[in-house]
Computed example of a mutant assay.
Amino acid sequence: MTEALKRLSEEGVAIWLDDLSRRLITSGDLGELLDQSYVVGVTTNPAIFQKAISAGEGYERQVAELAVRGVSVEEALRMITTADVRDACDVLHPVFEVTGGRDGRVSIEVDPRVAHDAEATAAEAKQLAWLVDRPNTLIKIPATRGGLPAITETVAQGISVNVTLIFSLERYREVMDAYLTGLEQADAKGLDISRIHSVASFFVSRVDTEIDKRLDALGTEEATALRGKAALANARLAYQAYEQVTASDRWRALLAKGANAQRPLWASTGVKDPAYPDTLYVTELVAPGTVNTMPGATLEATADHGEITGNTVSADGEEGYARARAELDALARVGISYDEVVQLLEDEGLEKFETAWNELLASTKAELDRLSPKKG
């Protein structure tokens, strides 16, 4: 049942789980995934925490203690989420040690409401790193234009980063530049840059969802022929951009000082359209030096019937990248603006995280009020 996951790992793809809850940790299920399913990392986001904490299992005692202390809702929420991430980091620490810090990572995101404020985002990143207090934490920073300087500042402080919500190729190149600049600044401060790690979370399925919707609205034969191609083409061109950066003199200078490459991470890999194979964004995005973070259902589907046939991203070299470019260029010919779509997806993605965070604040407040000692 795990042969496909084994093969995927052997092809150089790090398998991370896109999920976390207290029950997953305390039940031993997370440890079992590490032992049996080749999982070597965990990612979280506000929506994942909203789902986990709203379910309530395992959180009541901590919430009751926080209520007795009379802490604010925001402080309570951070104490709850960082506790889960800290415990998950401890579970994954053996992987972190074995891989020299490359994997065994657990991500936690800055407050999405400050995503457009570089100074506030960098301050939040520093605070989260201090709260979790584990070397295998990755601080997630959304790749908004305002977030780019925060990426540089956070990396320059020696904090490892997961840059999230990347949809466009242009923004991805800006993210890679922000990371390299942060490494250069950290090196200038005398920090050991070999201890800094990063991934860049390039979102996949949502691209197909939005573009397919527009293609369906057009309804032409030419438009229909383009369904289900944009997300993979976009991701493959992102990998090409990664190859170009890691072949540059600028990168080689940092590599000589011990720097770690910022690995492309395929995010949003759960298939939304039932017409597509449920392992589409795993089997078609196999490339060395990448991470694929999967929700539980996608991980199980890959283990059950995923067919790993080798490198499906860069094996064809420039010819394959030319095909991917042609597939994206074809969208413009039918009247679909790539730039408009990726900006919309970034805006919507951040809005969804903000909504989940606000819902989480509201439900946490309700629990604090319910468990608060009666007054008078």
Rank of each mutant, 00 (worst) to 15 (best):
A287R: 06
F203R: 05
K257F: 00
T246V: 13
G289Q: 09
A230V: 07
W251R: 03
D216R: 15
T298C: 01
V245K: 13
K229Y: 00
K229V: 03
Y281L: 10
P277L: 12
L265T: 00
V282H: 07
F203N: 00
A256K: 11
T298G: 09
A247E: 06
N234M: 05
N292S: 10
R206P: 06
L265A: 07
D216C: 05
R227H: 13
K257I: 02
T279C: 02
Y242K: 10
Y239A: 00
R263L: 15
T290H: 04
E222R: 14
L285R: 06
V245P: 08
A230W: 10
A225Q: 13
V291A: 01
A261H: 13
R206G: 03
L215V: 06
A223L: 11
T220K: 00
V207C: 02
N260C: 07
W266N: 12
R252K: 15
D249P: 08
G289W: 04
S248M: 04
T279R: 06
A301T: 09
A235E: 10
T279M: 05
S205P: 10
V291N: 09
Y276E: 15
E243V: 10
E243L: 15
V204F: 14
E210I: 04
N260F: 04
A301Q: 07
L265R: 10
L299Y: 04
D273A: 11
L232W: 05
L218G: 14
A241M: 10
G258T: 06
L218Y: 04
A275F: 11
R214T: 11
Y281I: 03
L215N: 07
N234K: 08
S268G: 09
